[in-house]
Nucleic acid binder design. Structure first.
Length: 285
DNA sequence: AAGTCGGGGCC
DNA sequence: GGCCCAGACTT
């Protein structure tokens, strides 16, 4: 099963820029943070722009935060951009400007959680690490457990499954992590999996063997986006990226029917460090 | 364990 | 109009 997926990747894997030999650990770390909850196609232009302007942690550490947020553009979750700059400063301050090795050192950096620490270990340092992202969760849920989708919450049992599935050999573990993630992204997709193209369908997938049973009735209900504080925060940040600053009274026009919502969101943006007050105006930090 | 946090493209 | 996307962090 492992070699089947690795061989598939050798032929079908995408030539993504952060996978090219010679890519720095910092560039790979930046790609992983940008890819958190964000599709590859939208990350590509931002990643090139960021690495062109800030090729090392020291470069980003010294950058004006307002420019950092502008170059983040519409990637979403702009707190990631702030944490990435804090991460760069921590790397300069505590690790001599080099991306540290080891899960514990990586996890202690701002914005680096369990997944990203493992991904940097595997893809930047070529170490053996249990990488578990949404793609790997789905491939293992289907191929091993015979389920249409992974459980809503990430459990210890699921992590144990991922650990068991990881090859013991270091080089094969790196290849496996990369390959199974790509399989989930290109073939074993959430909505319409293309089992006809899947190297595991014939012999390695319990879900396919069981006739692709449907998922249990939807229990998880996501928060709607239209009309939420998240959307309003995004609108305010879009204005600040475009103009650098705005009069608070002008921002109220973003939702004339509910000025309290605009004020509430402005306050949370300031609390998050994404905006600062300057008299009667709001501007990027 | 559950909520919050962007934004866009696809069905 | 709901769903999904290389998650992290707080409570």
């Amino acid at each position: 099963m492992v070699d089947t997926v690795i061989d598939w990747f050798a032929v079908q894997g995408r030539d993504l820029p952060w996978r090219r030999p010679g890519t720095s650990a910092w560039a790979i770390l930046v790609s992983e943070v940008m890819l958190q909850q964000t599709p590859v196609v939208r990350v590509l232009p931002r990643w090139h722009d960021w690495l062109e302007h800030w090729p090392t942690p020291a470069d980003l550490a010294d950058a004006p935060t307002a420019e950092v947020l502008r170059r983040w553009d519409r990637l979403g979750y702009p707190r990631r951009a702030l944490r990435l700059q804090e991460c760069a400063r921590a790397i300069v301050r505590e690790h001599g400007g080099e991306v540290p090795r080891g899960l514990d050192a990586l996890r202690s950096l701002p914005g680096i959680g369990e997944y990203t620490a493992a991904a940097v270990t595997a893809f930047a340092h070529h170490g053996r690490a249990v990488v578990v992202d949404t793609n790997i969760r789905r491939v293992l849920a289907r191929s091993v457990r015979g389920r249409a989708l992974p459980d809503a919450s990430y459990s210890a049992a699921e992590r144990a499954l991922a650990t068991r599935s990881l090859p013991t050999d270091r080089e094969r573990s790196v290849a496996w992590n990369q390959a199974v993630m790509e399989l989930g992204a290109l073939v074993c997709t959430a909505r319409s999996p293309q089992c006809a193209r899947c190297p595991l369908a014939k012999s390695g997938c319990a879900w396919f063997a069981a006739g692709r049973p449907a998922a249990a009735e939807g229990t998880r209900r996501r928060q709607a986006f239209e009309g939420t504080d998240r959307q309003m925060r995004g609108k305010i940040m879009a204005v600040l990226r475009r103009d650098g600053e705005a009069a608070v009274t002008d921002l109220l026009a973003l939702d004339p029917a509910d000025p309290a919502r605009v004020e509430r969101c402005t306050a949370t943006l300031v609390a998050d460090g994404l905006a600062v007050h300057a008299g009667e105006r709001l501007r990027l930090p």
